[in-house]
Computed example of a mutant assay.
Amino acid sequence: MEDQIIEKIAHEETRNYGFNLLVHEYQERIYWHVRKMVIDHDDADDLVQEIFVKVWKNLSKFRADSKLYTWVYRIATNECLNFLKKKKRRFFMPIHDLEGELAEKLTSSLEPTGDEVQMKLNKALLKLPDKQRMVFNMKYYDEMKFSDIAEITGTSIGALKASYHHAVKKIEDFINSN
């Protein structure tokens, strides 16, 4: 499917169709990637729209030297990190206040049947630095290879493995102490 999308977006006359295929193929995965970072559905929904607008505007810059999905994920990842930085600055919040706000949204957004272990995991994730949480989400939830995460984040595989290891350790410590 990725090859078909790349072929369509490469030609001016089929670019719109190719973009529609791209959105159809990646929208749900990008939404959940973003949602795990920003927690709030409305924020995630807005961000996903902004991400695909940015993808559309930059389609002509895509070179097939990387995978299409890693290119889209890179844009989504950067937009998420920028959104979280702006949110912290806009509200002049210390990091622990933003964690509290996101944890409150997390608690209120879960169905009453929400699993307690999942809730603890989500709260533990909020304690992680944004980039570490992003790496954990991509590896654990999205089941990405470190090589793809490296391409998306522009970080070495060794640094990503270390970041993932530290995230797992912090999560274990949080779950065991709460």
Rank of each mutant, 00 (worst) to 15 (best):
V23Y: 13
E25L: 02
E25S: 12
Y26I: 06
E28G: 06
W32C: 00
W32E: 02
H33V: 00
H33P: 00
H33T: 06
H33F: 11
K36V: 01
V38D: 12
I39R: 14
D40E: 13
A44C: 04
A44I: 02
D45V: 03
D46G: 08
L47S: 03
V48M: 06
E50M: 06
E50I: 01
I51Q: 11
F52Y: 14
F52Q: 06
V53G: 05
V55N: 06
W56C: 03
K57G: 05
K61A: 13
F62S: 03
A64P: 05
A64K: 11
D65P: 00
K67T: 12
Y69A: 01
V72Q: 03
V72F: 02
Y73F: 15
Y73V: 03
R74I: 02
T77W: 01
C80M: 14
L81F: 11
N82R: 14
K87M: 13
K88A: 09
K88C: 01
R89D: 10
R89N: 05
F92P: 00
F92A: 10
F92L: 11
I95H: 00
H96S: 13
H96E: 15
H96L: 09
D97W: 06
D97M: 04
G100F: 01
A103S: 13
A103H: 01
E104K: 08
K105I: 11
L106H: 03
T107R: 11
S108Y: 11
T113S: 15
G114R: 13
